[in-house]
Design a protein around this nucleic acid. Structure first.
Length: 271
DNA sequence: AGGTCGACCTGGCAGC
DNA sequence: TGCTGCCAGGTCGACC
């Protein structure tokens, strides 16, 4: 589900509420969301751990545990991390963490694609191997982007979804970023000239920054750590707007399939 | 190595 | 009221 802006929103919300608390109990209601360990091992490894910080890398949420390693949460399509003071499990609740501050975190996941791993070092998590730059950090420059696109014959849209190129962009923001930079999603990456790459870089930063400021996009399932929707949906220009008109030129927005995933774009002003 | 595709899951919704 | 098919914020491993 969530892309960088959504995970970052959850990270900030959780950091305000759980840093300094201890995990007192862990109830695993569906073992399929746990990776690399049995539910008993997973729970035993986390019980008693103090939460030192809540971080994020790409779309992964990282709970830093004092002297106990890390809890890495990948929400995938429909995962949620909801913090509540009262008891409120839902049908989709798969793990319940009870904390020392009277609160609970409900890991909810409709489709069960999400995964949680308790690890000693982050390198144990496959997703972090070869992960690209954080798009809202100083390391993400037009040059860094150019280097990662050089020589690639793949269309630019699926490359934006590749977290080894740049971390944290998903299917909604990939379409929005290409619209903002006026680049046709079907163009092979190696056809982008330096001016295109600069425009693309600027759009990545601008779109993701605004989406973070508006607490992400709720198309269907996304909720922040309080269970509230994000506000960026009103700013969406093309995603899921097939047949509506382009805000810039009034041409009809089209939907195509690339690597089995929908892409939305304006065929007139994206070139 | 780079590129593409199926698999993993559940549920909502449109159309008949 | 069904039923069917399509669609969904992601990642990974298996192929060519």
């Amino acid at each position: 589900m969530p892309e960088l802006p959504e995970v970052e929103t959850i990270r900030r919300d959780l950091a305000d509420r759980i840093v300094g608390a201890r995990i007192e109990e862990v109830e695993v209601l569906d073992r399929r969301v746990i990776r690399g360990q049995t539910p008993d091992q997973f729970a035993a490894g986390l019980r008693g751990a103090r939460i030192q910080a809540v971080e994020r890398r790409g779309k992964a949420l990282i709970l830093v545990l004092e002297d106990r390693g890390f809890l890495v949460v990948q929400l995938m399509m429909t995962g949620q991390m909801i913090f509540r003071a009262d008891s409120a499990p839902e049908k989709a609740s798969k793990i319940i963490f009870t904390l020392s501050n009277q609160g609970r975190i409900y890991y909810n996941d409709q489709r069960l694609f999400g995964r949680l791993q308790a690890v000693r070092v982050l390198a144990e998590v496959g997703y972090f191997r070869d992960i690209g730059p954080e798009p809202l950090s100083l390391e993400f420059t037009p040059q860094a982007l150019q280097e990662r696109l050089a020589g690639r014959r793949t269309p630019i849209k699926p490359l934006l979804l590749d977290h080894r190129v740049v971390a944290g962009i998903g299917n909604i923001y990939a379409s929005e970023i290409l619209y903002a930079s006026r680049i046709d999603p079907r163009r092979a990456a190696l056809t982008l000239v330096p001016r295109d790459v600069r425009a693309l870089h600027a759009a990545v930063v601008a779109v993701l920054s605004e989406a973070v400021a508006l607490r992400g996009t709720s198309m269907r399932d996304y909720r922040d750590a309080q269970g509230e929707k994000g506000l960026f949906k009103t700013r969406i220009k093309v995603y899921a707007r097939e047949g509506e008109t382009c805000p810039r030129c009034r041409t009809g927005i089209e939907r195509i399939i690339q690597n089995q995933r929908s892409t939305f774009f304006c065929p007139r002003c994206q070139r």
